[in-house]
Design a protein around this nucleic acid. Sequence first.
DNA 1: TCCCCTTTGAAGTAT
DNA 2: ATACTTCAAAGGGGA
Length: 592
Amino acid sequence: MPQLNGGGGDDLGANDELISFKDEGEQEEKISENSSAERDLADVKSSLVNESETNQNSSSDSEAERRPPPRSETFRDKSRESLEEAAKRQDGGLFKGPPYPGYPFIMIPDLSSPYLPNGSLSPTARTYLQMKWPLLDVQAGSLQSRQALKDARSPSPAHIVSNKVPVVQHPHHVHPLTPLITYSNEHFTPGNPPPHLPADVDPKTGIPRPPHPPDISPYYPLSPGTVGQIPHPLGWLVPQQGQPVYPITTGGFRHPYPTALTVNASMSSFLSSRFPPHMVPPHHSLHTTGIPHPAIVTPTVKQESSQSDVGSLHSSKHQDSKKEEEKKKPHIKKPLNAFMLYMKEMRAKVVAECTLKESAAINQILGRRWHALSREEQAKYYELARKERQLHMQLYPGWSARDNYVGSYGKKKKRKRDKQPGETNDANTPKKCRALFGLDRQSLWCKPCRRKKKCVRYIQGEGSCVSPPSSDGSLLDSPPSSPAMLASPSRDSKPQTEQTQPLSLSLKPDPLAHLVMMPPPSSLVLAESAASKPGALPAASCPNGALDHPPAALPPAAAASLAQPSTSSLHSHSSLAGTQPQPLSLVTKSLE
DNA sequence: TCCCCTTTGAAGTAT
DNA sequence: ATACTTCAAAGGGGA
C-alpha cells in the first residue's frame, strides 16, 4: 500500500498517471527547492501546475519527451469553441473563456496537502490550497480551523464562509441532499485526529492548521450567479448554497467525506468487522441524517433484500441475518478517477447540448471530448482524481478496491466482462479457432472466423481477428475484441493498417484525419454507432460537431500515430465520413 | 427488477 | 512483467 509521504508527493497516482502526469503533485518539492533531491525529482518531474499556471515551465525536457507535441490547438479550440458557444447559450454564459475557467481545483500543486504527514506547505502551495479548499467549504459555525485558517495566508474572510457552490447535479446513487447536508460539528467527536492523519502544522507558526482551509477563498472564480449551475465533479464535496458542507473534524482534519466524520454504531461495527482496528476510520460513514456519503454507499441491494424477503420466514433469526446484511451494506466506493470526474462535471453539459440522454451515448461523447482536452485541462482532473484518492486513502486506509469486487457486498458481476473473456479466450478468438481446430474443423470455429473461413489475425500473427467489416455489417455479430486488446498501448500500428476491429471501428486511429477531412457530426457518428447494433443507442442530435474532437492528450503511441497517420486510419475515417453505416463503437483507444 | 451499454482510469487478480 | 478484469458514474433501454 502506498504510503503517503508529504515530501514524496503523490504515491497514489497510477502508473500511467505517473507517466503522463508524474510531475503532478510534486509542487512541494519544486517549490521548496530545499533539497537537491527534490530538485532532482523536480527536474525529472516537470510541473504541470507551473506549466498551467505560469505557462513557462512547459518546456520541461522530460515533459516534452513524455508528452506528444501539442496538437493543433486551433482545431481543438475551434471545436471546443463552438461547443462552448452552445454551452454559453445553454447556461447563460456560465462557461466563459477556457473550458474550465472557474475550475476551483486548478492545479493543486500540493497534494501532500494538509492531511499528509510532513504536510508543511510552501507559501505557494498554500496559495494553491486557497484555491483548492474553498470547495471544501465548511459550515460557518465550524470548528477550529477557521482561526487557524486565518493564520495562514488565506484572507478567508468570514463572509466567504458561506457556501456558494450549489450543486445542481445529484450523484446517481447519492441522496440528492447529500451535498446539502450540514455536517454539524456536534456530530463529531472532539478530540484527536485519526492517528493516520497527522495534524497539519504550520511550519512557520507551529500552530496546527486545519488541513483544509474551510473558508471560501477570495480566489474562487465563480460568480454567485453562475456557480449554482456547475455540477462539480465532487458535488458531494462542494458546499451548497447556504449549506455548510463538511466541517472540519476534530484535530483540524476535515474530510471531504462527511461519512467519515461521524460514526454510528452500525457503521462502526461494520468497519470494525471489515477492517482491522487500525484501518477503521475513526468516524462513521453515515451522517446522523442517515444519508450516506457518496463514497460509502448503502447498496440497499435491491436484489439482495428482495431475495431475503422472498425467502423470509419472518423469523427473528432472519431479522438477525437481516441486520447483519445491513451491516454489510455500506460500501466504500472507489474514488473517482480523472475521467469519471470529468464525466460527472461535463455530463450535464453534454446532455444539455445534445438530445442524447442515454448515458452510453453521452459517455461516448465524453470519451472523445476527454481526449480532446489539452493536457492542462486533463491535468486538472488528474489532479483532482489524485486528491480524491488521497482523501479516500486517508479516510479508509485499509480500503482496497478488492473490497468492492464481487462478493464483498453482494453485487453481481457484470455479465459482459464475464462473457467476453470467455469468448475471446475460448473459441471466438480467431487465432485459437484456427490454431485449435484447424481448417479441417471449421465447424468448430467461432462465427466470425467461420464466415471468413480464415483468421487474418492468425495469419498476421497478430492479436486480434481482423474480420474486415463487411458492407452489410455482418461483423456486427462478431465477438468484440477484448477491451485490453483495444486498449493495448503496445499495439502495433502496422497491423492496424490491415486490421479493423470487428466491433470497434475506432474513430481515433488517426486524429489528424479529422483535420484533413470533415469530421462526421457527432450525431452521425452516434447514429452510426446506434446502427451498429440492435437496440443501439439512439442517434444523437448535437448542435455542433464539437463533440467530435480529435484526441488531445495522446499517449506516446497515439502521438506516434499522429505523426505517421496510417492509411488504415484514413481509411477508417473515409468510411466513417461516408454515409455507409459502420460498426462503430467509438472506441478511442485502439491505438493508444 | 436487474443488467447492459459506454467511456477512461485505477487497481485488483491471473498468468 | 504482462494481460486481463472489475469497478467507479450515469440513465435509458432491453430482457
